[in-house]
Design a protein around this nucleic acid. Structure first.
Length: 416
RNA sequence: GUGAGUGUAGCUCAACUUGGUUAGAGCACUUGACUGUGGCUCAAGAUGUUGGGGGUUCAAGUCCCCUCACUCACCCCA
C-alpha cells in the first residue's frame, strides 16, 4: 500500500460503522426523551472563536489546534470541541431561550495518538442554554447515566463536583497557591507547571505522592460562595432524590477554562480503555455567552467520546439480516428475481446469487455478506412451489411454501 | 513536546542468546475430493523489495547508524 490514512485518523469499516450508528441512534433516542433537538454547526470556525472560549491557557488551544489561513486570508481552525460553535449560533440567530440541543460530529486536535485518543474523533454532546438550574444540571447528568446504562455499560462511574464561579474561585486559588508554595519541595515537576498555569489541575496528577499530598489541599467545594453552595447542594439533593448513582469527588476538575459551578465526568473502569478512562464530561458554563458579547445567560452541557464508548462496548458482533437467494440453474433465475422483488417490497433486505456461482460458492458469499437466510430454489422447488429456507446462523433449514415465505421471514423472532 | 516498545505473507507470529545455503508456521485465500449445502475433514497450490536508506562483514531478517511508520505511556483531554 502506498498511501494510508493520516496519523491519528481512523476508518470505520462496515462492522465498526454499524456499531457507531447504533451508539448514535441510542444517543438520539435518549436525549430525545429530554426534549433535545439536533444542531449541526460547521467543522471549522474562525480561530478567534476558540481563543475566546476554550481558553488561552489550555493545551487544546495553545498546542493542539488544526489552524490555517484559507485562500481568502481568513484565520480558520478545525473545531477542537463543539460548545463554542453552538454558543456562537445561539447568539448569531438570537435563538429563543431556553433551548436544548444535541450534536454529533467529528472534532480535531493535534496530539500524539494513543488508545482512545485520536486526532480526528467523534463527540456526542448536549447543550442546554438559558436554564439556571439546578434541575437542568441533574437532567443533564441523568441523560448521561441513562445513555450508558441503555448501552449496557455497567462499569461507568459519574463523578460530580462544583468548581465555583468568578466570585468564589479567586479565594480558593489563593489558598491553593499558598498550599502549593508550602509544599513545592514535595510535588512533581508537572505539578509545578500546573501550579503556574492552572493550579486546580494539580488534582488530576497521576503521581501517587502528589495524590496523597493533595488529600489535604484546599478543595474548591469548601470555598464556594453562598449562591454556589446553595446551587450545588440542590444538585446533590436532587441527584439523590432521582436515585442517580454518583460519586461526589472533590478532586475532580475540568480541563476547559469556561466551566463554572457543577462539573461532572463519566469514568469507565473497562479494561478496554487503557489510560483514557474518561468517556465524557461536562459542566456549567454560565459566563460563556456573556463573554461572547451576549446577555448574561446560564448554560450547561457535556461531551462524550464516541470512540471511547465503542472501545468500552468491545468488538461488535456482525448483525445478520439479509436474505440470500440462490437459484440453482440459470433457467430458474427468473423465479429468483421474482422472489427478490417480493422480499424487497416487503422491506426485507435481499440479494440474488450470481448465476455463475454454484451453490457451494453461493453459500460462502452469503456467509461473507453476513446474510441471515439463504433461500435455495431448484427445479424440485419450482415444481412444488416449496422453497428451501436455510438459516445460516442456526444451521437449520426447512421447506416453506412459496406464498408463505414473507410471513415466515417476518415472524422469524417468534420461531425456534 | 517527552519516554519506552514494535516493524517479517492479507492477518497473528517464528527464525533464539551466538550473523551461515532456498526466510517458516497457523489462520485466511484459490482449486479439487463434493456439478443440491458454507463454517468440519483431507489433498494440492499461490504469496514476501524481512518498513526504507546507508554501514560493518566472505556472508545481515539477525549487528551498528539514520529515517519512516505503528503501538503504549507521560503531557493533555472525549
Amino acid at each position: 500500500m502506498i498511501i494510508s490514512n493520516p496519523k491519528g485518523t481512523q476508518d470505520f469499516l462496515p462492522l465498526q460503522s454499524g456499531q457507531k450508528h447504533l451508539v448514535e441512534t441510542r444517543f438520539r433516542e435518549t436525549v430525545g426523551l429530554y426534549g433535545f433537538s439536533e444542531i449541526v454547526t460547521p467543522t471549522f470556525e474562525h480561530t478567534e472563536l476558540f481563543l475566546r472560549s476554550t481558553g488561552l491557557t489550555t493545551d487544546i488551544i495553545t498546542k493542539q489546534i488544526y489552524q490555517f489561513i484559507d485562500k481568502g486570508g481568513r484565520d480558520i481552525t478545525l473545531r477542537p470541541e463543539g460548545t463554542p460553535g453552538i454558543v456562537r449560533a445561539v447568539l448569531q440567530y438570537n435563538l429563543k431561550l431556553p433551548v436544548r440541543m444535541f450534536y454529533i460530529g467529528p472534532m480535531f486536535r493535534y496530539e500524539r495518538p494513543q488508545k482512545g485518543r485520536y486526532r480526528e474523533f467523534y463527540q456526542l454532546g448536549v447543550e442546554a442554554v438559558g436554564e439556571i438550574g439546578p434541575d437542568i444540571d441533574v437532567e443533564i447528568i441523568e441523560i448521561g447515566s441513562r445513555f450508558f446504562t441503555g448501552l449496557g455499560l455497567k462499569d461507568v462511574i459519574t463523578k460530580v463536583n462544583s468548581v465555583g464561579c468568578a466570585v468564589c474561585r479567586p479565594k480558593h486559588r489563593t489558598e491553593l497557591g499558598l498550599f502549593l508554595e508550602r509544599n513545592k519541595a514535595k510535588i512533581c515537576d508537572d505539578c509545578k507547571g500546573r501550579a503556574e498555569r492552572n493550579p486546580m489541575r494539580i488534582f488530576d496528577c497521576k503521581e501517587a505522592t502528589c495524590q496523597e499530598l493533595y488529600i489535604n489541599a484546599p478543595k474548591i467545594v469548601d470555598y464556594l460562595c453562598f449562591d454556589c453552595q446553595q446551587h450545588f447542594q440542590s444538585v446533590l439533593n436532587e441527584l439523590v432524590e432521582r436515585k442517580i448513582p454518583f460519586e461526589l469527588n472533590k478532586m475532580m476538575v475540568r480541563g476547559l477554562d469556561y466551566y463554572t459551578r457543577t462539573a461532572f465526568e463519566f469514568v469507565s473502569s473497562s479494561s478496554e480503555l487503557g489510560a483514557q478512562d474518561s468517556l465524557g464530561g461536562g459542566g456549567r458554563y454560565d459566563n460563556l455567552v456573556e463573554d461572547f458579547g451576549g446577555p448574561k445567560t446560564p448554560a450547561i452541557g457535556f461531551a462524550l467520546g464516541l470512540e471511547r464508548i465503542m472501545l468500552a462496548l468491545g468488538t461488535p458482533r456482525p448483525i445478520r439480516k439479509a436474505v440470500y437467494i440462490i437459484p440453482l440453474d440459470p433457467s430458474i433465475q427468473k423465479q429468483g428475481k421474482e422472489l427478490l422483488r417480493l422480499l424487497r417490497n416487503a422491506n426485507i433486505p435481499a440479494l440474488l446469487n450470481n448465476p455463475d456461482k454454484n451453490l457451494r460458492a453461493g453459500l460462502g458469499i452469503a456467509d461473507n455478506l453476513a446474510c441471515e437466510y439463504v433461500i435455495i430454489i431448484g427445479s424440485e422447488e419450482v415444481k412444488k412451489q416449496i422453497y428451501t429456507v436455510k438459516n445460516l446462523v442456526k444451521r437449520t433449514q426447512k421447506q416453506v411454501p412459496q406464498n408463505q415465505i414473507i410471513e415466515v421471514l417476518t415472524n422469524k423472532e417468534n420461531q425456534s
